[in-house]
């Protein structure tokens, strides 16, 4: 399969990429690792007339420690994140999630920024981004802004990013204890259910992906948390827009969500 025709431009800096994006508007798509975009283009689910390749922009490819945060450039691949000593030490849950994505080859190409911008409801990162209350750093024609995890994911494949914006980095607060528990879709390795849980003081923060059109914080569980896993029964309280497909219907998926929240609480 060969995608429809497009023009390809390799941006050598963020500034150049932003200018190109403004110039071409919604005709253009940003290409990072390409592991969601290129298959979509082959299947004609996406037909951008311009691809702006940001993959070579090295300023977006670093993992650094800044005070209480680990700052991950949007171009970092899942492999980089899974194997980074800084991430393993300070945001271990993120390295666990990265290692659950796809397979070696996918992890060698796919990027954190690309995955978040694509906002596939079955992708792994959103659960961890929500649980950790990470912030997404985006740049556009009006300059730089940060978007809180809770505000970022808005609908199926829809985020708070504006058309002229590019994710440049994601800032994760350091986490002392966290776990990512996932029920894999057996062929694609996407998350049928993915649950990220971290300890915060005496409480917990829980993000859930795969279950609903939009990943969510399991606030009912967080509020009912008593140090045991019994609050897991509240995992689906107030959740609507539950995904139903031939791998898991609504009832089964809801059941899985409760089971995986329970496992996450037990693993903490």
């Amino acid at each position: 399969m060969i995608p429809a025709k497009f023009d390809y431009i390799k941006a050598s800096s963020l500034g150049e990429a932003l200018t190109l994006l403004q110039e071409h508007g919604d005709e253009a798509k940003i290409l990072s690792g390409g592991h969601s975009l290129i298959p979509s283009m082959k299947l004609r689910l996406a037909t951008p007339s311009v691809l702006i390749d940001i993959g070579g922009i090295s300023e977006m490819n670093t993992i650094t420690e800044e005070g209480d945060e680990i700052v991950i450039g949007a171009n970092c691949t899942h492999h980089q994140i899974a194997t980074s000593d800084l991430v393993r030490e300070h945001v271990n849950i993120l390295s666990q999630a990265a290692l659950c994505i796809g397979d070696i080859q996918v992890r060698n190409r796919g990027t954190l920024g690309g995955s978040l911008a694509h906002a596939d409801p079955a992708s792994d990162y959103p659960a961890t981004v929500l649980a950790c209350e990470a912030t997404i750093v985006a740049e556009g024609k009006d300059g730089k802004r940060t978007i809180g995890a809770n505000d970022f994911f808005q609908a199926l494949f829809l985020t708070a990013l504006q058309d002229d914006e590019i994710i440049t980095a994601i800032r994760f607060p350091k986490v002392s204890q966290g776990t990512y528990q996932k029920f894999f879709q057996s062929a694609s390795r996407f998350a049928v259910v993915g649950v990220a849980a971290i300890k915060k003081g005496d409480g917990v923060q829980i993000g859930v992906t795969g279950v609903s059109g939009v990943p969510f914080r399991a606030t009912a569980v967080e509020n009912a948390y008593d140090g045991t896993s019994s609050a897991a029964k509240h995992a689906m309280d107030g959740v609507d827009d539950i995904i139903s497909d031939h791998f898991a219907d609504e009832e089964y998926r809801s059941h899985l969500a409760r089971v995986y929240v329970k496992r996450a609480l037990e693993a903490l």
Binding site: Y8, G34, H35, I38, P39, D53, I104, Q105, N108, R109
Partner: peptide, 15 residues
């Protein structure tokens, strides 16, 4: 690709 295994169907030659 630069020493890392990749699925070449999902890398554009220009990349």
């Amino acid at each position: 690709l630069d020493g890392q295994a990749v699925k070449s169907c999902t890398v554009l030659a220009v990349q």
